[in-house]
């Protein structure tokens, strides 16, 4: 028995259901709303045409600081990157503080990574096994000459594909909308990255300058990874609970709890090992202060990978052994 036709089945079932179209429409509507809000905000922000003068003043100020030699070495490094970044924009006659289509995509990736994309991933994941139980089709699915492990494996792969497709289409839609509103160019603009919070101050010693397209790909990759973890956990709850509503409710509750917990109990250190605490990967990457000390992007990726692996293993063990009686 070949594996590919099974995956084809699962992908077809995912795409044929209304659920998929609804998720896509939610994405489009939300992105449209954000673009609209950005446009409204920009109208106030970009009233003056004298941005060039102000940016050049900023560059001159920083150049003086560097030349004075009294700047600490690390700050000097960061300042040189910043001067180069501003100069890049001036050379291309682009306001460095204005939003562009590519910048909007980057913003969207960041904002959607810890709730929107994981939520949509769990809509797929919590349904993928339990729907077969509620429809009764599990009885045919598991009485065909195919091992149960292959059936679940095909579902896992289809879920991965669906989540990937969702993240990709989120990016494409954001670029289409953002590009229409703010212009499609600007992928090459340098961005400063690698800030780190040490103690009370930003550590700028590790700052690097990379082109925007690279940064955007990275951030999307992280958002994708976080969504896959949520997908894997949703798959497990779907296997365990055999009811779409129960699985979805459980995962929703976990996600929401994860956004509340660091705020109400910031001193509980062990929560840095929970999967929800580690979901905002792009935030940790770009150096926002983590809610619990000790979380770095590397740490978070490892924790999420462990959660995914454990969830997938548990899902397989239960699915392959358990009697189908309902």
């Amino acid at each position: 028995m070949r594996f590919f036709p099974l995956v084809e089945n699962e992908v077809l079932k995912l795409l044929k259901r209304r659920r998929f179209r609804v998720v896509f429409l939610i994405l489009v509507a939300l992105i449209g709303l954000i673009v609209f809000a950005q446009v409204k905000g920009r109208e106030r922000f970009l009233s003056g045409k004298d941005w060039r003068v102000r940016v050049q003043e900023r560059i001159a100020g920083m150049q003086n600081g560097v030349r004075s030699g009294r700047m600490p070495k690390t700050a000097e490094r960061w300042t040189r990157f910043e001067i180069a970044r501003l100069q890049y924009h001036v050379d291309r006659d682009v306001n460095p503080d204005a939003i562009t289509g590519p910048l909007f995509v980057r913003l969207f990736a960041n904002a959607s990574s810890y709730l929107l994309l994981p939520l949509l991933a769990l809509v797929f994941g919590s349904d993928i096994v339990s729907s077969e139980f509620s429809q009764g089709t599990i009885k045919i699915l598991l009485t065909r000459p195919v091992s149960r492990a292959a059936v679940l494996g095909s579902k896992l792969l289809a879920l991965t594909l669906a989540i990937t497709l969702m993240v990709l289409s989120g990016g494409v839609v954001a670029y289409l909308f953002g590009g229409t509103a703010f212009g499609f160019r600007g992928w090459g603009a340098p961005v400063l990255t690698g800030f780190r919070l040490t103690g009370e101050a930003f550590d700028v010693a590790t700052v690097r300058s990379i082109p925007l397209w690279k940064e955007t790909l990275l951030v999307f990759g992280l958002a994708w990874f976080a969504s896959l973890t949520v997908g894997a956990l949703a798959l497990l709850t779907s296997v365990l609970l055999r009811s779409t509503a129960a699985a979805m409710g459980t995962m929703f509750a976990a996600l929401i709890a994860g956004t509340i917990l660091p705020r109400v109990a910031p001193s509980w250190e062990a929560q840095k090992y929970l999967f929800v605490t580690n979901l905002p990967l792009p935030d940790y990457y770009s150096g926002s202060p983590p809610p619990i000390p000790g979380i770095t992007v590397g740490f978070a990726v490892v924790v999420l990978a462990l959660w995914s692996a454990a969830a997938i293993l548990a899902a397989f063990l239960v699915f392959v052994r358990r009697d189908v009686l309902a």
Binding site: P5, K16, G136, T137, T143, P145
Partner: peptide, 24 residues
Amino acid sequence: VESPDLYGYLSGRENLLHFARMLP
């Protein structure tokens, strides 16, 4: 088993094709 449960959101043909893919 128990009742003839198939995918309601698929056509009869799509259901048969689906299960045919699980066979040699």
